[in-house]
Design a binder for these strands. Structure first.
Lengths: 235, 235
DNA sequence: TGTACATCAGTGAACGCGCGTTCACTGATGTAC
DNA sequence: TGTACATCAGTGAACGCGCGTTCACTGATGTAC
């Protein structure tokens, strides 16, 4: 019977999700290195070996957490961009930045798992690559769209780009932001690292004691960076 | 006898240093969370409890590693700045950036300890604050010097700064970069986070598969950022 | 210079705890005829 | 609809390992008179 087969499968799916949820909550208290299958099993009310019916090893559970994390962040970024009028390029950039920051502040331990110190002894498998770049794909689309609309014009004189570097930048980002000139690609990359640098500083406590509220400083920072990239409002 | 007293003290100092060295090497294989007093003792050829003659707890050893790390990075940055003619502001900024990146790439696990995910359960004591900002102090001095020399002029029109934010920025950074206007302070902060964002991406593997050699992209990035801050070459 | 005492480094055993993973097993759920 | 068989989830014990920290102790080094 298909119905009963799905019944068992549904329970399985539910328990799998529950395991992942508990593991995610464990990140908060013990960090990625301290993620423990035994502790998860304890909280599930199961014997520790039972977890192995769902995940073949600790690292597989970690991989699931990482993929879920990238997907959650990626979705947040995609939603933020989709909610902004497509021809308002500086606003789209700002929306993406805020989505990243908001998600990171709401999920600091997952953020640490994705963008903090690598977990010792853990090697991320291939499956993480797709989800990993969802946010960057959105950013690339913004630059591409702006370029097509003639709204990507750096205010400052473009720095001359070394020929080899330009070729490499073009090749690496051709699919991510087609049509965007190398100088803009590299400016974009600088802005992108600034975004994650800020968020990491904030989440990891490096900014403590600087501002009472980091929000306005962040806002100003991304406005300046948007101008540096050359994103302008057409019309 | 003073001579013999210092003999015993010298041995003590030597062993203390050896413990720290071994602990630092352990960071590379097991990360900050996996730092183990027992493993250190084993490598020292000591019984595990003997370590407690030198460090009252695991966290104290960790604190020493952190302070040493900040000092090593800070010294590298200070040396790099000191080796550059004081009136060549863009070059000083570039020197600082390269010092940070070079140090981080040479000591990735210490860098992770300082700028990666916080160690779960560990709370950094007050003593870390001084060493923690040595690099930022150098950066602040560059901006201050440039401002005084009239070489801090953003190419792009300065973004208007919200009054409250300007006041907070001025207050927070008055001692770090005296005389620097709020807009420049905030631009500087954006560039600073970009620097650490880039280095973190590189050290933590986020940039893997982008460039064959990250160096030229980094160079270009910091040149663009230097222009964004407004650092110019006087004369 | 010699002796009595205090300081200090290092030992070894113990406490109480944690972990990932394997394996033979029971009993329930689902499938095919 | 009923029965025989296969699949699967969860058990409980075990292997072999790790950790931080405490404590009473021995023996060497340093100090004061």
């Amino acid at each position: 019977m298909t119905a009963s087969r799905t019944a068992r499968e549904r329970v399985r799916a539910e328990l799998t999700r529950e395991i992942v949820d508990i593991a995610r909550r464990q990140l908060a208290t013990d960090g990625a290195g301290g993620l423990s299958l035994r502790a998860v099993a304890r909280e599930m009310g199961m014997v520790s070996s039972a977890i192995y019916r769902y995940f073949p090893s600790r690292d597989d559970l970690l991989t699931t957490l990482i993929i879920d994390g990238y997907n959650a962040l990626g979705e947040a970024v995609e939603r933020a961009d989709a909610a902004t009028p497509p021809d308002r390029f500086p606003a789209r950039w700002a929306a993406v930045c805020h989505a990243v920051r908001d998600w990171a502040l709401a999920h600091p331990h997952e953020y640490a798992l994705l963008y903090g110190s690598p977990v010792p002894g853990y090697q991320a498998p291939q499956d993480t690559i797709g989800p990993r770049v969802r946010d960057l794909v959105v950013f690339g689309r913004i630059l591409s769209d702006a370029q097509r609309a003639g709204a990507l014009t750096p205010a400052a004189a473009p720095a001359e780009v070394d020929a080899g570097l330009a070729a490499e930048a073009e090749a690496s980002f051709a699919d991510l932001m087609p049509g965007v000139p190398p100088d803009a690609v590299l400016r974009g990359l600088a802005a992108w690292t600034s975004l994650y640098g800020w968020v990491s500083f904030e989440v990891f406590g490096q900014l403590k004691g600087t501002f009472q509220d980091n929000g306005p400083g962040f806002d100003h920072s991304i406005r300046v960076l948007g101008a540096m990239i050359g994103l302008t409002q057409p019309g």
